[in-house]
Amino acid sequence: MKKIFYCLLALIACTNVANAAGQLTEAQLGQILFLDSNFSVNRTMSCATCHDPSKSFSDHRENVGLGMVSLGDDTKSLGTRNTPMATYANTSPSFHFDEVLKEYVGGQFLDGRANTLSDQAMGPPLNPVEMALPDAETLVKRLQENPFYVSTFKRLYGETVFDSKQSDTVLPAFDGFSRALQAFEKTDAFSSYDSKYDRFLKGEYDLTVLEDLGRTLFFSNNNVNCNSCHMLKTEDSPKEPFTNHQYRNIGVPSNDQLLALGHIKEDFIDHGLLENPAVDDPKYDGKFKNPSLRNVAVTAPYMHNGVFKELRTVMEFYDHYNNTERTINPETGKPWRSPEVPTTVDKEDLTAHALTDRKIDALVAFMKTLTDKRFEPLLMLDKKSK
């Protein structure tokens, strides 16, 4: 509890979301809800459990599915996907099909099945392998146990917010719960834009030779192809999210270690975007949302199934498509395994010049500069652990 208390104080200090009258705003209510474990079936898991505010809002628990997927409130249930970091999720538009791009864009979760942050917030409390509440009514009852929530919800959402007869779809209080979390996730606590790279753009930080080489490679169309998926604006634009919010199949293999945990069948295949109820065209099979590269260096493991543990491994994996000498996965000492969904791999986006080890080191160095200032100490912790 002490850890949660200090996290709360730190977040209140950095978000500064109380209004002039001293009353809590919707964002600050969301901040408190985010840290409250009463919305899981056994009252042991909060949003912050899998999205630790001190760890770039990602899951760094030692008991987390051997470092691949998150452990549920019952201390035994496991999902099938690596928990995405929550930082910069607020840069994503609502899920939609872009008629110009002829692409699905935006949304939340790795398959975009939640249109907005508010929609996404409704998922984990009712997910049987996460917070595992049986229904929205139970969550509303948990809210009503706390006089603070009752009074704050009525002030923000109306005196009848706990009247379940208002809506035939989403209970008003459950809707308020999700809206408050969305308001919090839209604050600077989740998108501070103060990394070394952001400071470089302002003339407040000088990139090292290796970092600058990585920056040049990243934005170059003649070397690697990073910016085809991980750039929304133009080179060196401020507040670049480092994702275009689109979906790609980059040929990620299934994760044998994940399958070995025994909670899913050995022939399990994650179909990515095709798991989204709004998508039924098989050409989208195996495509996942391009993640933001902000804080990527401190949010391992990588890929939708946590198959890679090191950022450098990810870069070698990309390079193996173009480099005949890059045949071995450095984490396993064995050849790269075949894609989980081989028929829809986006080969064009993976086409690039072969990379030397120095160029890979440079790209990793550049991506480390995308770490928010308050999370930079995590880079040092990771270095000491190796």
Rank of each mutant, 00 (worst) to 15 (best):
A86W: 15
E103R: 14
G72P: 05
L71P: 03
M122C: 09
T116V: 06
L66I: 01
S92Q: 13
D73T: 08
L117C: 09
Q120M: 09
Q108Y: 01
P84I: 07
S56I: 07
H51V: 11
F95M: 14
T49H: 07
H96P: 03
N90H: 13
Q120E: 04
Q108C: 01
S70M: 05
P124T: 11
P53M: 04
G112Y: 00
R113T: 12
V105C: 06
F97L: 06
A48C: 05
S94P: 13
T49V: 14
S118F: 03
A48H: 10
L71T: 10
L71A: 02
P125S: 10
S56Q: 11
N90L: 08
T75C: 11
V105W: 03
D119I: 10
S77T: 15
T83Q: 13
N82C: 08
D98I: 08
Q120K: 07
G72L: 02
D111Q: 01
G79H: 11
A121R: 01
G112I: 12
E99P: 06
R61Y: 13
N63Q: 06
D119H: 14
S94Y: 08
D119F: 11
T91R: 10
S58P: 00
G107F: 00
S77K: 07
S58I: 01
D52A: 15
V64P: 00
M122I: 01
T80I: 12
V69E: 06
L66D: 13
D59N: 05
E103V: 06
A48Q: 05
S118W: 03
D111T: 13
V69R: 09
H51K: 07
K55T: 11
G107E: 07
L78S: 03
S70T: 15
R81M: 08
T49A: 15
P125H: 04
T116N: 03
K102G: 11
G65P: 05
S70V: 08
N90K: 12
L78Y: 01
A86K: 09
D52V: 15
M85I: 10
D119V: 06
D111H: 00
S58V: 00
D73C: 09
P125L: 04
